[in-house]
Design a protein around this nucleic acid. Structure first.
Lengths: 227, 227
DNA sequence: CATAAAATTTAACAGAGGTTAAATCACAAG
DNA sequence: CTTGTGATTTAACCTCTGTTAAATTTTATG
């Protein structure tokens, strides 16, 4: 009756997987995930997260340094990458097979990511032709936990006049995604950076459909493959 | 962060929905679902089920007569039918769209049925062309909670020599389903009942691929549309 | 009808995952 | 080098959904 897959260590359930997922993503940016950030991402209080982190540490899924932060153990990372793989495959499936818009898929995928089983995961992967990225361009971890090597750079790191193909739009904000999609700024689109106004001013981007001007906060979530 | 849909009353979660689902199915056969049966279906102890039933009664999802059994309130029935609709749509989707065999879909669908959201449900329904039955032939409740009218009768109720089209194979036993499928006994197949050996003996069924002989325990889960 | 067996409920407890309020730690700023 | 502030942890408690063991009710049977 448990949802955990037979290959899972005991007690690996929804809550656990969501914690590991969040810790993985936070430790991509800084070297350790701190309690308050984890709590925010999960919508729980810092004290709740603190207690849970201690339990995850007892279960050897996270490495915890009190008052300093948490990182994943290799087992924790394995489970996190599996969840992220499933999440991104689901996003791709919802988008490509079921026709949901790219700004809608994150929520649905989140609800499903801990419920799907390995055969489902594998079948989606097959049907999608073993995709390497989700609709937003995030990398889909392979089953062995490795990630494809890519050459994504921030759009804003391009020299004005330089060209690249959008590869990733890095946000979980559905509104932003919807807006950027409407402006024609999504993975696969070849763009030229025309200019960045100073002091955080607007960014002008040339797309196949014409020039688009967006704020820097939006521009900085766009990653491109240069040239 | 809760999995419950916005339209749900508070506290409607996986466990609750699984209880309601089981109670609904049990009350299809007898007029009230008794504690031990519910507990068995859910894989919990009768005492655990008893406690949970009391809580469901407090929440006005079941009508409980102590020591007698449980039935669903209209709200409980609404939620049960929604879960069953989602389960059967999922089974259909897994079978038709994703290519899983009919004996594999029940388990996957069970894991997903409480995690999917209304847009998912609606999209699956659309993609499948608003199906009225799951791969095993069970009726898919409509969104308003009504069920299609059908004319299914037990295969074994046919007079020897009579013909009908298999409409439903009523079991959650994957092995049986696999076996019956291999024998060509699945929904849509036109069969003729050749004979029933006395004293619980084997049943001979004519299919387009030839005659098949199966035990009565298997035969009695097969329902047909006569003529 | 009495009584044994079966079903059901209650009582006491457990573990997971939270909460709020209080205590404690880390660290930047005087 | 103290100190105040923010981050973190601990303590005490809560709900949910279970457990086992004991009590109780129903039902079947002689």
């Amino acid at each position: 009756m448990s949802k955990a897959t037979y290959t899972d260590p005991a007690g690996v359930n929804d809550a656990t997987l969501h914690y590991l997922d969040v810790i993985y993503r936070l430790t991509q940016q800084s070297d350790a995930a701190n309690t308050t950030e984890i709590a925010e991402k999960l919508g729980v209080t810092p004290s709740g997260a603190s207690v849970m982190l201690k339990r995850l540490a007892e279960r050897k899924l996270v490495q915890l340094t009190p008052y300093k932060g948490a990182t994943l153990t290799s087992e924790g990372r394995r489970l996190a990458l599996r969840t992220i793989r499933r999440h991104r495959l689901l996003e791709m499936f919802l988008h490509q097979v079921m026709g949901f818009a790219w700004h809608e898929v994150d929520d649905h995928a989140h609800a499903l990511e801990t419920a799907i089983t390995e055969p489902l995961e594998d079948r989606m992967d097959e049907m999608l032709g073993h995709p390497t990225r989700c609709p937003h361009g995030h990398l889909i971890p392979r089953k062995d936990g490795t990630l494809p090597k890519v050459n994504d750079v921030p759009l804003l790191s391009l020299a004005p006049g330089a060209t690249g193909v959008i590869r990733c739009v890095d946000t979980d904000n559905g509104e932003w995604l919807k807006y950027l999609g409407e402006q024609g700024l999504q993975p696969g689109v070849r763009v030229t950076l025309r200019g960045i106004a100073p002091y955080g001013g607007p960014v002008t981007i040339e797309t196949p459909d014409g020039a688009v001007v967006i704020g820097q906060n939006l521009a900085e979530i766009i990653y491109v493959e240069p040239n």
